[in-house]
């Protein structure tokens, strides 16, 4: 069909335009010039050296990693339990309850952020990393619930019934049947909840204070003052993390596909 070919051509161009900005940032980050301009006339790692050599950026990176790690742990555990409850449990007004759990994705982050900030100031929680992670968990947990709900829905309830009828107790069914079967999805949700926190700006902006500035917050501050070229390297680093997460996710999925086919 000719029309199909034309649409596919247009879509190809649009798709290229969608990745282009990201590719440009990555290329720019390797610029050897004193000021960033595209295309760079020479190649160097100077901006990366600046990024990793600067105490401020380094501590922001460290803060981001700790917070994202804690968020990942909190939201994966709570999200898994919640998803299991949604798929297998009897919950009053289930759909409405689900819509409530997903609400943090919908409510503008700015509202969540300032409300949290408003409550955190008197409690002295601003700048506390674990608290930022708890705040991030609120927006990361719906993602975990969505991923794991669809994975759990793919697990035939008769498998659990079969295990029960064969004499296994609930905990054994969970450990020996449910957990191994949703392990890939569990890893996906761990990866994506990590990423959600690692990339999150608005909540961190209000809760981080001076002590716990995360990478996105530092980029934000820098973009609002004067744009330092180091940001290209920091951005490329964040893109790199995203690529890693997506690759890890794809690897997990491939592994599973191969295992179930064999």
């Amino acid at each position: 069909m000719r029309a199909d070919t034309i649409v596919k051509g247009i879509a190809g161009v649009l798709c290229a335009a969608l990745v282009a900005p990201i590719v440009i940032v990555v290329i720019l980050s390797f610029s050897g010039d004193r000021f960033l301009s595209f295309p760079p006339s020479s190649v160097s790692l100077q901006w990366y050296a600046k990024f990793f050599g600067d105490d401020g950026w380094r501590s922001a990176l460290f803060a981001s990693l700790t917070i994202a790690g804690a968020t990942c742990a909190i939201s994966t555990v709570l999200g898994f339990l919640g998803a299991y409850a949604f798929v297998r449990g009897r919950i009053p007004a289930k759909q409405l309850m689900l819509s409530f759990v997903l609400l943090p994705l919908i409510v503008p982050h700015i509202i969540t952020a300032i409300a949290l900030y408003f409550a955190s100031v008197p409690l002295g929680l601003v700048g506390v990393r674990l608290w930022i992670a708890v705040g991030h968990s609120v927006v990361a947990v719906p993602i975990v619930v969505l991923i794991l709900m669809s994975a759990l829905q793919g697990v035939d309830i008769n498998l659990e019934r079969a295990a029960l009828s064969l004499g296994a107790d609930r905990l054994t069914v969970f450990r020996r049947i449910v957990l191994p079967l949703v392990l890939p999805a569990l890893m996906s949700s761990a990866l994506f909840s990590f990423l959600a926190s690692f990339d999150e700006l608005v909540i961190a902006l209000f809760l981080s204070g001076v002590a716990s500035e995360t990478l996105p917050v530092r980029i934000w501050n820098s973009l609002r003052m004067e744009v330092e070229p180091t940001i290209a390297a920091v951005s490329a680093f964040l893109i790199g993390i995203t690529v890693l997460v997506l690759l890890a996710d794809a690897a997990v999925k491939r592994l599973v596909a191969r295992r179930s086919a064999g």
């Binding site: 879509a11 969608l18 900005p21 595209f38 980029i219 973009l223 951005s235 995203t242 690529v243 997506l246």
Partner: peptide, 25 residues
Amino acid sequence: TLMVICIVLPYFTSIIVRTYSWMVI
């Protein structure tokens, strides 16, 4: 696969990085 990458890579990239990329452009 290529199209999915073109959509998913930006989708999961930090909003601040995506905004910065357009500021560069």
